[in-house]
């Protein structure tokens, strides 16, 4: 299969603090690759570099052969925080049409594409509602529909299911698997949930603590058709899960410090602050 995304020697520093160090990997066309790593390890920084939202300090990203400089046209991102990512002043349909405005000039065609995308996620009836009238899971389905409506070459998902309850989360996972099968999308999904990465992914890339680097690149040898109960109970699933957990927790030479959770959160906080500062400076010039 041809390569859709290639990340080479990627590094990003905020001042003297390295968030991502010398990262390299590829994602093939039609593949769903999951990146799993401890919180605060620089996953989001990595994803934002791939999306072209921030410029990496070193290394490069190429999307179907073209180097990424700025946000590529055929890329879509689904953020974790759907309530902040959806525009509250636009109806559900308006939200899905938002990215289409630059891509589809014909109004009726745009409307049709939006309705279509909403149907993919089972929200054909909710088009004229406002986001706050929907439940959290439905709102995240709107963001997915919005991303899919652009027919992106690469769909980036940043912890997309981390803010919904467990049942909704399982439903959304299956929904993602279904739409990507139906539309042959290439997906790069970032998560901190080991089970989710194995359940969804064709491949799982395991990241180390910050500065993030790739510890392992595992191919998920599970049948393409996944099932919340059967797949999660299978011996292979448990094996993979255990392997990743071991990679994440007992990495030789990198014993977790006693206040690991705390320092991770702090690191995440610091990254975010640094990033905002950077974005602010960019936007003010």
């Amino acid at each position: 299969m041809p390569t859709m995304l290639e990340v080479r020697g990627l590094a990003h520093r905020y001042g003297s603090y390295a968030a991502v160090e010398n990262l390299s990997f590829t994602v093939a066309e039609d593949e769903l690759a999951c990146i799993v790593g401890p919180s605060g390890c620089g996953k989001s920084t990595l994803l934002r570099c791939v999306a072209g939202l921030i410029k990496p300090t070193a290394g490069g990203v190429t999307l179907h052969g073209d180097p990424v400089d700025g946000v590529p046209a055929d890329l879509a991102v689904v953020f974790q925080d759907y309530s902040r990512s959806l525009f509250p002043w636009l109806s559900v349909r308006g939200n899905v049409e938002f990215p289409l405005r630059t891509r589809v000039s014909n109004r009726t065609e745009r409307r049709k594409r939006a309705e279509e995308a909403l149907a993919w996620v089972g929200l054909e009836a909710a088009g004229s509602k406002y986001p706050w009238q929907l439940s959290g899971g439905m709102q995240q389905r709107v963001s997915i529909a919005r991303a899919l409506a652009c027919k992106p070459a690469l769909l980036l998902m940043d912890e997309p299911f981390a803010s919904v309850d467990a049942q909704t989360r399982a439903d959304l996972e299956d929904l993602l698997l279904r739409v990507r099968r139906e539309h042959g999308s290439t997906v790069l999904l970032v998560t901190h949930d080991i089970d989710e990465s194995v359940y969804l992914g064709d491949r799982v890339l395991v990241l180390s603590k910050s500065p993030a680097s790739i510890v392992a690149d595992l191919t998920v040898t599970l049948p393409a058709q996944r099932d919340q109960i059967a797949t999660r109970g299978s011996a292979r699933f448990v094996e993979l899960r255990t392997e990743i957990a071991r990679l994440l927790h007992d990495r030789p030479g990198a014993p977790p410090p006693p206040n690991a959770a705390n320092s991770d959160a702090l690191a995440a906080e610091r990254f975010l602050a640094a990033e905002r500062e950077e974005a602010r400076q960019q936007s003010s010039h």
């Binding site: 946000v71 902040r84 525009f87 990215p99 652009c150 936007s283």
Partner: peptide, 21 residues
């Protein structure tokens, strides 16, 4: 909101649409 800024940027939203919408 910063997430809305990122969302709009990730869709390559042009300036006029960004301001108006």
């Amino acid at each position: 909101d910063s997430v809305k800024t990122d969302t709009a940027r990730s869709f390559g939203t042009p300036r006029t649409q960004w301001v108006a919408m």
